[in-house]
Design a protein around this nucleic acid. Structure first.
Lengths: 302, 302
DNA sequence: GTCCGATTATGAATGAAATTCATGAATTGA
DNA sequence: TCAATTCATGAATTTCATTCATAATCGGAC
């Protein structure tokens, strides 16, 4: 009766807080999830979801099953790693290139976990950015984390997640009363960003350039440095929501939506198609996804 | 990809030593098992079964997955017990009646495990035998372990396993050269058995009475006592193969097949249909089955 | 209050995929 | 060598999870 897929679903619900986005996460329709849960509930004769108006969470029983799921998945991964160890190909290289500066923040723990699991694989971060990041796969990198998936033959793209870019303002900024910012609002501000060309900045490419607005820019290498500049009123920035929660909670800065619907961006992992068969690559990908969804607030599956 | 059912299958193969009987165990055809294993093998790119002529077992990879299965199932059972604990009905009674004397031997560990898991349930062994054991369910027992499944309305029967009854002889018996015994062979022997009427002895009911042979009988309450009497040449007995392996290995007695095809008997658990819904009953049943197949040699699913 | 948007529930239809069926090949024991 | 087992495999079938279509529910905006 109980199947792996049920546990996957429950965990997705727990982590995303509602059925619809859990459905997206496990690549099913909302209907499928509802049916699954209902089947489980009638089987165990216990409610698994708490449907109290807006707040929608797992009951104790649901939580217990989600917990079961987590231990089971970690057991499965351990076993599958052991299996991979019985293969020949357990050594190799993994050069990771990042298009997105902020990604350093969550990539580190993933890399650590990976190194533990695959001590024979040589992991490297490829620094230096490129106008066509995919071309790095030709010689300099084995996997590229990038935000635009321009398909190219022979390259496989693995969607990681979607997230919102928020405008970051000092706490007492003149725009703080607005619920969301419009392109005009940026006209008189200095935009603080990573040191990359305009077209590599989502806010510029998607919002400001189309509106003909070109605010002065100032750059910093590290996310914390950008935030510090914002906090000290040197300008405003646009950063992924998931990198911000800590600073927002401590009232270091404030964040506002960009445009009525928000400015959304997606992250993908790209690699030479043949590479994705390598067990260690598959494992890295699953570590990657798992980590995003369980650790990063506000990320949504693509 | 990997699913619960695969793990069930692998464990069944490991415990039964070949695909066909594993198939019976999981209530599938042999073909289904083959397909399943093949799918797993191509997915992991590793062989899971060792097909070396006669000896047919799991490879290291297969063993690793079977191990994974076992830990997963024990996790699942733990979780499901916790879920049952969230129910109201966690107390109750469980009076077990046995038709088969030898069953005491393997029932004890099951009862112990059960008592640990369901401390609130009062477990009792109902002693005293009955010509119609099912009728015990009317008032004196909640579950009956019996060897013949005469269906009765409102009673649910749960097949446990099938096993062979072997004739047990002293090591230097005159019949020791025979590969199997025929009814005539019993004519001059004393039959040592549990103290129950002729019709309750499989050997009598199925073999000797139909052949008009009525050897003298002598009885003992305990299996060890019967074996002792046999070893000291007071007669021969017929006992389930799974209760014998210890004694055979130590050359305390020898065992021979009864009839060319052997004398087979089946064991069932019967209970009032409504009872089988109770979570603790379901749990007891699964403990029961699990225990039979993993601990008893030579038992086959029905 | 009610209209709208978002979210969940549910029955029926669909479709993918697991299972069975029908064989063939391989091995063993008589 | 012949029957009897056991496993493998491609095709047919059946099962059952998922999707589709739609209703119900709920909260917030006006």
């Amino acid at each position: 009766m109980l199947e792996i897929r049920h546990l996957k679903t429950l965990i997705a619900i727990q982590e995303s807080g509602n059925v619809s986005s859990a459905a997206r996460r496990v690549h099913l329709t909302q209907s499928a999830i509802s049916h699954q849960i209902k089947a489980l509930e009638t089987h165990y004769g216990l409610p698994l979801l708490e449907r109290k108006g807006r707040s929608y969470g797992l009951t104790d029983a649901g939580k217990r099953l989600a917990e079961l799921g987590k231990t089971i998945f970690s057991e499965i991964r351990r076993a599958e790693r052991d299996l991979s160890g019985m293969h020949e190909n357990q050594s190799g290289s993994m050069r990771i290139a990042l298009e997105c500066h902020t990604c350093f923040d969550w990539l580190m723990p993933v890399m650590d976990a990976f190194r533990k699991a695959w001590p024979e694989v040589e992991v490297d971060l490829v620094s230096g950015f490129h106008s066509d990041p995919v071309s790095l796969l030709d010689d300099r990198a084995d996997i590229v984390i990038l935000s635009d998936a321009l398909k190219r033959e022979g390259i496989s793209y693995h969607p990681l997640f979607k997230f919102e870019m928020l405008a970051v303002l000092p706490i007492d900024h003149r725009l703080k009363a607005k619920r969301f910012l419009l392109p005009e609002d940026f006209a008189e501000e200095t935009l603080i960003s990573y040191p990359v060309p305009d077209e590599r900045i989502d806010l510029m490419r998607e919002v400001l350039i189309p509106s003909g607005i070109r605010p002065p820019r100032r750059t910093a290498e590290l996310t914390v440095a950008i935030l510090q500049l914002v906090a000290s009123r040197r300008g405003i920035a646009a950063l992924p929501s998931w990198g911000l929660s800590n600073y927002l909670e401590h009232d270091y800065v404030i964040a506002r939506r960009i445009g009525r619907k928000g400015l959304w961006s997606g992250l993908y992992a790209a690699m030479i198609r043949e590479m994705s068969d390598h067990p260690y690559m598959a494992d890295f990908l699953s570590l990657l996804k798992e980590n995003c969804f369980s650790k990063l607030k506000g990320v949504v599956p693509i």
